[in-house]
Nucleic acid binder design. Structure first.
Length: 828
RNA sequence: GCCGGGAUGGUGGAAUGGGUAGACACACGGGACUUAAAAUCCCGCGGGCCUCGGCCUGUGCCGGUUCAAGUCCGGCUCCCGGCACCA
């Protein structure tokens, strides 16, 4: 009688074994080369979903594979534990965010253990622990000292209902996502990280990230958005001062017939002072300022503006040109003022036509001349400069560099570079986040909390009502404090940090999670960093991955790390799709990992998610596909159990060349499979084709004749094939593989077994199948000895009966050979 | 609008430096075992024609390069993702 595949017992037993033996615990005292594999840590939302199963299955294959290849593999797991959902749960269910978070972590940790992922649990961390965020407060103070953290007034989304700041993602159609009240823009003092100081470095660093997908690098480059151009100062008419504008098209400056300002521009109101339109200008500016950024940023919004009543001088043409406010000019980019060139910018063109401003073409396409009256849209391409003084006749490109030089010569401006990247706003008017460690004193102003008084802990006795803004701002026990400098009364900062700050350095903390005297232990981070392979969803292509790159540079400059780039290689996995849509509660298409584990086991769940698609593509969920994966594991199990006794009688041997043809084929396939699986994992993480290859090996093994199995050499080869198959399966389905390995009589842990080697010689076939084409079309197949030379193959091809029939006496013009594969006979 | 990525059987997907298109699996059809069902095993499975040995055709569409194109080049169509009034 053969025993059944009782996955529930097997999986529980091996998970217990790995835990008991601390099988995946690592330290720095190892002679093996290090390998740091990391998957993006989860937010403890309650339970794991299929996206997690996929992400962590992919990571676990790589971790287990690298271990078998002889690496000292760091594979940690933790929790991105601060964030809004905990607070919302507190409001809705009257559960404290800390308790909600801890309970979720406990449940999800158990789920991850049930999946059999090979984490070093000794390094587990949760970002909401003071033992984690205290170090973030240390970093903050250091950044403050270096001018990398600063506070300034900034326009924010303000929900009139909840009386709180909202992230851009929380504004839906200009309304609050939760209470649906109107969202307005409001100026509030906010904390920022000066990521823009690293814009050029972050951009240049992209060129060296050869292990990242091009798609992600492109997105990062676009996000940083470098523009090379010039700053030009337009002197104000009838008063002191000037207006600085930024342009990338200084070659069009002779066509600048007005200047447009953002509503937030410091001179916006001043310039209309004392003019009849002052009231109208004020009203316009206020109206525009209140519109949320998402709505103002809409291309469809009609271009609108108002004349300020003032003029400035275009220093190139000597003309006085009007100054307008315009709703499409952004204060955050450039200088908040643009020189308007209607003939060569589509927005300025529309604006000029609407308000009757002059359109003056100063760039002509090669071999043509533009006339303002005939233009129906702006000519935005490069061309030849005209009506541009001494610069006329130059190409746009040449003109740009000449004018930039000319600006500096005359001190009218200079060539300059601008980035779209903005400083990172990290203030959140929220409870469940890391407190920003500063206090405000009436006498001393803003004072950092001294390092030895850290951490500034989150208070626990908090009411969550969902109204009246941040709970911390309503808690005198928290914000009433004394000034560290003068010991007078002071008010504590009640903003907390964006949760993206925690996830910007957790990977470094995994190197030394128990370090309690300093944030990072340079010795240990130097050993483990950078992360050799990072795995996660592509949705983090910009935010998290850019913040982490920035923060790593900051930590390097502060001396905490030696590397500039945190992640050497990046694998972005696709989404899990069912019935044509991403799995989500609202779509009612969620498959719960718990159900899957209960019905089929973790190995089946892992196998299916790895087999159904290559990692970077979206994965189409299929219940029947899961069944299929489960059936395969059953087949492997039954085969091993059925032949266990026979195989125990022989020693595994795949070196010897067996007698029968079928066995020779099995031996060749065995070695080929090792090569195929190794290459698929090593070179491109294509686990689906690796698993397919193992299935093919199993199919060949399974169709072995009873006669071959009775033979000594047959049984020895079968044993080698089965054991190799189990070892190759180990990274994918570790429980069943471990169980079978043990049942086949091995005492050594499968995780410690080395990855199998293949023999190049064993791949060579005795005879090869050569495809014969006539004029590029498949006409026959011939079998030739492996060592046959080209001449012999050609002769054999021409002699093939079917091929001869197609040639049918016609002249052979040419014969093309692909060595060992194909012959193409070209006839007239 | 700009920047990426993609389109291959009924389905998910293979084909890695142009060289047998459809590996592996799912679904489906037929058969074996069974009193029956499930499970398992075997056979078939792009389309069309067929004298059953084959023949023609086929990788979104149109054209090109090549002895040879899913793969390279030019021009389209549609789908997905990101950014989006960035001066």
């Amino acid at each position: 009688m053969t025993e059944k595949y009782e996955f529930w017992n097997i999986e529980e037993r091996w998970q217990g074994e790995w835990e008991r033996l601390e099988s995946f615990r690592v330290d720095e005292a190892s002679d093996l080369p290090k390998y740091y594999l990391l998957e993006m840590f989860p937010y403890p939302s309650g339970r794991i979903h299929m996206g997690h199963v996929r992400n962590y299955s992919i990571g676990d294959v790589i971790a287990r594979y690298k271990r078998m290849r002889g690496f000292n593999v760091l594979h940690p797991m933790g929790w991105d534990a601060f964030g809004l959902p905990a607070e919302n749960a507190a409001i809705a269910n009257k559960v404290h965010p800390a308790r909600w978070t801890v309970e979720n972590i406990d449940y999800m940790r158990a789920q991850l253990k049930q999946m059999g992922f090979s984490y070093d649990w000794a390094r587990e961390l949760a970002t909401s622990d003071a033992s984690y965020y205290r170090w973030e407060q240390v970093f903050f103070l250091e950044m403050l000292k270096r001018g990398l953290a600063y506070k300034r007034n900034s326009a924010v989304n303000w929900c009139t209902g909840c009386e709180t700041v909202l992230a851009n993602e929380q504004v839906v159609d200009g309304r609050c996502w939760r209470c649906e009240q109107e969202v307005l823009m409001r100026e509030l003092p906010q904390w920022f990280f000066r990521i823009t100081a690293y814009a050029e470095d972050l951009l240049a660093g992209c060129d060296d990230l050869h292990g990242w997908p091009d798609k992600v690098l492109t997105m990062q480059r676009n996000w940083i958005g470098k523009s090379i151009g010039a700053e030009i100062r337009f002197p104000l008419v009838g008063r002191e001062g000037d207006l600085a504008v930024f342009t990338t098209r200084q070659d069009t400056v002779y066509g600048a017939t007005f200047v447009s300002l953002a509503a937030e521009h410091p001179l916006a109101l001043e310039l209309s002072e004392g003019t009849p339109q002052h009231g109208a200008v004020r009203e316009f500016a206020q109206r525009v300022k209140r519109i949320s950024h998402s709505r103002r940023g809409d291309v469809e919004t009609e271009k609108e503006g108002i004349f300020t009543g003032s003029f400035c001088l275009n220093p190139f043409t000597g003309e006085n040109i009007p100054i307008y406010l315009a709703n499409f000019v952004l204060m955050e980019y450039g200088t908040g003022a643009v020189m308007a060139v209607p003939a060569h910018d589509q927005r300025d063109f529309e604006f000029a036509r609407k308000y009757g401003l002059p359109v003056r073409p100063v760039i002509h396409p090669r071999g043509a001349t533009l006339a303002a009256e005939d233009m129906t849209e702006a000519y935005v391409a490069d061309g030849v400069m005209a009506d541009s003084g001494d610069f006329s006749g130059l190409s746009s490109e040449e003109g740009r560099s000449r004018i930039a030089a000319f600006l500096e010569e005359r001190d009218w401006g200079k060539g300059t570079v601008r980035y779209r990247l903005r400083d990172w706003g990290i203030s959140r008017q929220r409870y469940w986040g890391a407190p920003i460690p500063v206090v405000y004193c009436d006498r001393c102003g803003m004072v950092p909390v001294p390092v030895d008084e850290l951490p500034v802990r989150l208070p626990t006795n908090v009411e969550f009502t969902g109204a009246g803004g941040s709970p911390l701002a309503n808690l005198p026990e928290f914000y009433e404090t004394e000034c560290p400098t003068c010991r007078g009364p002071a008010r504590r900062e009640t903003d907390t940090m964006d949760t993206f700050v925690e996830s910007s350095w957790y990977f470094a903390r995994y190197a030394c999670p128990d370090e309690d005297r300093q944030p990072l232990d340079r010795k240990r981070t130097d050993y483990w960093m950078a992360v050799d392979q990072y795995v996660g969803g592509v949705e983090h292509a910009v935010l998290h991955l850019l913040y982490a790159r920035f923060y790593t540079r900051v930590l390097r400059d502060m001396g905490w790390l030696s590397v500039a780039e945190p992640f050497t290689n990046l694998l972005t996995q696709g989404m899990v799709i069912k019935d044509g849509a991403k799995m989500s509660k609202s779509k009612m298409n969620v498959v719960d990992p718990d159900d899957l584990i209960r019905r089929y086991g973790a190995d089946t769940a892992r196998l299916f998610t790895l087999f159904a698609a290559p990692p970077e593509k979206d994965l189409d969920w299929s219940d029947q596909g899961v069944e299929g994966a489960h059936r395969f594991l059953n087949r492997v199990w039954r085969f091993a159990m059925r032949h266990r006794e026979r195989l125990a009688e022989v020693a595994a041997d795949s070196g010897r060349i067996p007698s029968s043809g079928a066995l020779k084929e099995l031996r060749r396939r065995l070695h080929w499979t090792i090569k195929k699986v190794t290459d698929d994992i090593e070179q491109r993480f294509h686990f689906n084709t690796a698993i397919a290859a193992i299935m093919e090996l199993h199919n060949t093994l399974g169709s072995m004749s009873p006669e071959d199995l009775r033979q000594e050499d047959g049984a020895a080869l079968a044993k080698a094939a089965l054991e190799t198959e189990i070892v190759l399966l180990a990274p994918f389905v570790p429980h069943i593989a471990s169980e079978l390995w043990q049942r086949l009589g091995h005492t050594e842990a499968l995780a410690d077994v080395g990855w199998p080697e293949y023999s190049e010689a064993a791949l060579v076939e005795e005879s090869r199948l050569i495809v014969v084409q006539v004029n590029g079309k498949l006409r026959g197949k011939i079998s030739v000895p492996a060592d046959a030379d080209a001449e012999r193959i050609e002769t054999a091809a021409l002699a093939d009966a079917r091929v001869a029939a197609f040639i049918d006496g016609r002249d052979v013009r040419r014969v093309v050979q692909v060595p060992g594969r194909l012959v193409n006979i070209v006839i007239e």
